[in-house]
Design a protein around this nucleic acid. Sequence first.
DNA 1: TCTTTGACGTACA
DNA 2: GTGTACGCCAAAG
Length: 111
Amino acid sequence: MSGQSYFELVYYVTQKIPSGRVSTYGAIADYLSLGSARMVGWALTQSHRSSMGDIPAQRVVNRKGELSGRMHFKTPTHMQELLEAEGVRVVKDRVADFDKLFWHPQELDED
DNA sequence: TCTTTGACGTACA
DNA sequence: GTGTACGCCAAAG
């Protein structure tokens, strides 16, 4: 991967997140050396107009495991529904067993 | 061109 | 646990 904008890299990593697992803005930002987790958030904000198709943005949550970006989906509950459909339990807008379900992009390299 | 605004994170009181 | 402050950097107006 090269010559792509930072947000395309974010999409790439986001699509690599295994179903039933979740990652964080900070982990992705660190892995891509973006310098700021906000860049990831901004990229996902634009994910709806991505030409790469569906971006599983519901698998990206903040450091606490909160569904901070649910308001940007079609409906505020759509994000949670997608996660639960993948087997991720969500309680009070937070990922249950977040520590266990957490996935770091670094695992792509260990592959 | 400048100012404001974020799907964030860390530090500190 | 809660609230405030600041750093981060790109996009929008």
